[in-house]
Every structure is written in C-alpha cells, then in structure tokens.
Design a binder for these strands. Structure first.
Lengths: 256, 256
DNA sequence: TTTGCCGGATTGTCGGACAATCTAACCGCC
DNA sequence: GGCGGTTAGATTGTCCGACAATCCGGCAAA
C-alpha cells in the first residue's frame, strides 16, 4: 500500500522485479555448470545440501531443480540422487519438433529446410563415413528390400537410414539442425509409400545410390541422389493429394 | 493418502516405475495442449483448480507446472496467473546453442552447417523477401558502413543483418535450424574483424551483393555471395590464427 | 467518470511430517 | 577372512498447513 506507492515513485531503480527464489536457485546452479565449476558426471549434492547452501526451503529448491532437470543439465539416477550431466540432444530435437508443429509450419517450409540439410549431411557423410558405418547402411538397405511390401516398416527403416547417414556425417551441428525437420518429413513418408505404388522401389534405389556415392567418396553423386530422394518425397506427397502449403498436422507429434 | 494406497495396489502393472506425480501432472496438461484441447491464449486455471483436478498437493502441482513453464507451453503473466502459450523459439535457440557448446562441437562442424543453412536461407529470401524487408536490409547496410571502424558494432550489425535475412526467408524451419549455429559463428565474427584488416569492407560488400541479388530475385547470385560470405569468415578465422578443429569456447555462451 | 480503498483470491515461500526407497555399516556364518 | 543378509540412517516424493505479498474486482467517495 504505502510501501507500494513509495517504491513506485522512483521507477527507474526497480529493475523489473527480482526473480523468484526458485529461479535464482536454478540460475545459480546453471551458471556453475556452464562456467565449468560443476562438471558433467559430478554429483550435485542432496536437496538438503542445496537448502543449506541457498538458505531457502526444500520446496523452493525442488522447484528450481526441476527446471535444470528439464533442460537436461541435471539428472537423477536410479537412486534419485542428483548428477550434473551434458544435455542429451534427443530432448532438444523433440522440443524443436513440437515447436514447429505448434507454430503450424507448412510442409513446404519443411521441404526446403530438409532438402538443404539433407544435401549437406550427405556431403559430409561422403567425406567422413567409416567402413563400419557404410556396412550398417548396407544392412539397413537389405532389411528394407526384404520388407518392400510393408509401408510402415519401410518408413521406419527409412528413418533409421537417415539416422545412420546423420551419424556418418560426423557433424553434430548438422544432425541437431536436421533431425527435427527430418523426423517430420519421415512421419509423412508412410503416407507417400502407401499412395504411390512405385515409391518403395524408388526409395530403396535412392538409398542404394547414396551408399554407393559414399563408398566411392563421390560428393556430386551424393548430392544428386540426395536431391532426387527428397524431391521424390515431395512429388509423392503432392501425388498423394496433399497440399504442400498446408500446416503439418498435430498428429505427427504423437510419433514420439 | 488413500488415493496413494489405491494407486499402488496393483503392483504387477507398474511398468518400470510409474512416473512421479509431478510428471504425470505435467504430461497430462501437455497432452491437453498438444491435442488442442487447451489452446494458446487460454487461461490454464489456478493452482488450486489443478490441485482439485489431479487430486495431488499444491507443491506437486507446482513442480509439474514449472516443467511446462520451462518448456514454454505455459506462461505466467504479470499477475502470475497461468496461461497456455505457444513456445517461443528464442528459448529453443539458446538451448540448442548451449548444447552445442557443452558438447564441444568444433568450428568446422559449425562452418559446414552454417554454410548449408545460409545458402538455403538466402535462396528462400531471394524468392520471398518483401519490399519492406529489403528496405530494412538496406538500412542495416547503411548503418554498418557508418561504423566500419568499430568491430564490435559491425559484428553486432552483421548479426542483425542475418536475422533480417532469416526473417525474409519466410521459412521458420530454416530459421530455427540456422539460428543456433549462426549465432555462434557471429560470436567469432568480431574476432575476425579485429584481426583481418580488410574484413569489414569485404563483409559489407558481401551484404550489399546479398541485397542486390534479393532485389533482382537472382537465386544464383544469392547463393554465390552467401558462399563467399561464409567462406570469408572461415578464411578470416584461420588467418586470425585459430584452429577450425578446435571446440568452440564456452565464452560464447555468455553472449546471451 | 475518476480516484481511492477494501476484502477476497492467488501466488511465493516457508516449516514440518511421513512412507518408500536407497546406502552403508554391521553382524553372523561359512 | 570373505560373504550374504539385516538393520539403522539418509534421501526423496508427496502431503499438510500456514503466512506475507500481491493482484483483482467492486464499492464508496470525490
């Protein structure tokens, strides 16, 4: 009341509002982690210790810890003790994917991004793939050929194939940029496989050409077939009667 | 109390360990939002209401709500009431950036990804930029030219320029994929500008060519100058005595 | 209509509590 | 002495109740 009036008189000094305690706790721990004072793999200490350290109630500490847990900087092991950890990328990938769906991006936006990222990923895979990774790609193709009649299975193996390509690129930046959009493209691959009779055969052929290019370290061939592969998806999508300028469905969220 | 006992009575069905109550609350609300039963802009209701709805304690509800708040699906307004919201992408961008730094990706990975994404973004901007967006790019270039002697300022304006290009692409997927890595590249742009005398002039010239290509709707020119611009950064980085295969520093986290 | 004030509602934070579970020390047995 | 089982202690998940600060909506006064 009076205090309020008094505090509002010099508005220049009130920097927003001092953040709540649970956030201060989270931010303090986060700063320690980012600055390297707390390293991944080290224990964070018990809730009681944090209560003592920050001088706040355990409920408050817990609210703060939840934030860090959610952002992947802190993990609880089987015994629920707290450990500092490197954020796993899977969580980020699905957050980004979810954001894309909620913001109702169109399939065309998805296609443009997926094409660019696929080209770069294949190019990197051509340069950096190891023999073991090439073998894994081969095996994936063989399994796909054995299931050509089963669209769901082919779609799943296609997703796996692109995951393998991503790994073979040895570029984590590309992978993190690629996965959210690619997962969404792959979600609609099954639709294309069902509606376009020749799609499964074309898909597996493109995969074979990918691997061939990678084995021969032929960058241009890799780019060529990547382009064809993504373009095939686009054409199939349109031929299946879908509209590229339509926002992607929320359905695709449920796949993970 | 009784509820608790009731829920635990059928132990055979306990898959692994039934997730804790705070997470069940978070997931239930999240499902409602993703399924569209709760839409962005709608109030989520008070904590007391959620307590009644889920039959758990307020502390538990609060722990759960914090998770949603952190992932951006739920927001508190000035009065701290809860609202459903579309996740803002800024938070995702900085999460991804943080993950890249913590995972110690190298500048080379960054460069490869930034190049591919920059090409695609410029290409999209060439197709979709509006006159107003082109004007904004022009003004940015003018401001940059006026500050050519100030590396920090040029670096900042360069970041703004690329943000404008991203907006002109009208492709939110590309933007979300591009921003985390590009922000990291931009962080080291200042270093290059300081160490390479001709860098500022080359940078502004490339920007001018970008805009020229966009205005003429010339895709190839756009790609060409995007490639040169990113390549310039890479050469400058090496000329400044840096190693492309070195992980990026944690320093770059502090820029935001 | 505008301003000021008030009561109710809501949140941020606190203290304390208890069952379930995990850890680690202890103990008896081979 | 080493080993498996047991028990006491520590820790977490959840609950209950409480209070100050703040916000909102309405009512009275100007």
């Amino acid at each position: 009341m009076t205090t309020q009036a008094l505090m509002k008189s010099p508005p220049k000094f009130r920097r927003a509002a001092s953040s709540p305690a649970y956030r201060r706790v989270a931010e303090a721990v986060e700063r320690d982690i980012l600055a390297g004072r707390l390293k991944a793999g080290e224990p964070l200490g018990t809730e009681a210790a944090l209560v003592a350290q920050f001088g706040v109630n355990r409920s408050t500490v817990r609210e703060g810890i939840r934030l860090l847990e959610h952002s992947g900087l802190v993990r609880r092991d089987a015994s629920r003790r707290l450990w500092v950890e490197l954020p796993r990328t899977e969580r980020l990938v699905s957050s980004v994917r979810r954001a894309l769906v909620l913001h109702e991006v169109t399939f065309r936006e998805l296609y443009d991004a997926a094409l660019a990222l696929q080209l770069a990923t294949v190019e990197a895979a051509v340069q950096h793939a190891t023999p073991a990774e090439i073998d894994a790609l081969e095996r994936n193709i063989e399994r796909t050929e054995a299931k050509l009649g089963d669209p769901a299975e082919v779609a799943h193996l296609d997703g796996q194939f692109h995951e393998l390509i991503g790994g073979a690129s040895h570029n984590r930046v590309l992978q993190l940029a690629r996965e959210p959009s690619e997962l969404l493209v792959i979600s609609s691959t099954e639709l294309v496989l069902r509606k376009v009779p020749e799609a499964p055969a074309r898909l597996v052929h493109a995969h074979r050409m990918y691997v061939d290019a990678i084995r021969r370290r032929d960058r241009e061939a890799g780019r060529l077939w990547a382009r064809r592969h993504v373009e095939d998806w686009r054409r199939g999508f349109v031929r299946a009667g879908e509209d590229l300028d339509r926002p992607i469905d929320r359905i695709y969220l449920e796949s993970s």
